[in-house]
Amino acid sequence: MVRKILSRLAQYGFTLLAASFLLFTLTEFSPGTVASKILGPYALENQVALLNAQLGLDEPLLHRYVDWLQTLVGLSPNLLPEAAPGLGLSDPRGDKYFGNFGYSLMMKEPVLDVLADRIGHTAWLSAWALGLTIPISLLLGTLAGMHAGSSVDRVISTVTVTLTSLPEFVVAVGLLLIFVASLGWLPGTSSLQPGDQWSTGAQLVLPVTVLLIASGAYLTRIVRASVAETMQADYVRTARLKGLSPRRVIWAHVLRNAMIAPITVILLQVNWILTGVVVVEAIFAYPGLGSLMLRAALFGDIFTVQALTMLALSVALITQFLGDVAYAILDPRIRVD
């Protein structure tokens, strides 16, 4: 078991490394080199060449990738402040530390500081979304799956099928029309500025609801399918026939077995929420990592984009790994192979 987990961990580590290389290679194609962004559009060719040489940007791709990785893990310093003294870039952590993604060209600050300012907001939003999505979908999915074919099931299934067909931005527009434009109950933007006329709670309602609808409908369907399938299993029939109360059959037999698939889906759901967060934060001008990603991408702030993508990749791979482990623990049959 331990060996299996370790080999999985090594595999995910390798995937992260390969993904980081792909990311580095793709962002290399960003229009306008780093040097031209720092020196401005009127820089002379020899100035650009000099800066490129100072930053080691004239080296071959693989060499630059290894440099980038070394700076990232804190083995070598970031050369940008020295090469471009005019920008006044400085980092209180020194020039060698783990997680050194360099400097945001948009904010003229260390990328880590830019992320630190916003990560709490995104964590807060995601926590609310997941904290509501999981219990609600488990409840509705179990309810529908237990009585497959009943009118309760038909209502829940129809609503969730419809909602999974709705893009997040359509859900958001619908909610904006009802609760902001027509009723005026909630704010249309959630910028969390101090002194805003709307409380933080009111500002969170719509972003959280959009995420809840987008991922909750899908999760409910998975739970429903899994519970409905387990209800058909022989051991459930046996448990019923030997006279166990329906409640006991559901809790002791159905749910324990039916939850295996949804738990892995819940962990993968984190990935969905990451994507949803970008859309939702952009729509509601929420000051989190998702809206930062979009702004950084449109600005061409490649160091920030790299850092955010590495963060997203790490979260995605860690949750996948946890999903594997959870699966192995919950389903004893997996261990055998």
């Binding site: 859309v279 990603m293 991408a297 791979l317």
Partner: peptide
């Protein structure tokens, strides 16, 4: 391992 939208954002901003 790339969340889909993030992959597009990288590709579309790079190209």
């Amino acid at each position: 391992s790339f969340p889909a939208l993030i992959l597009y954002i990288i590709l579309i901003t790079s190209f």
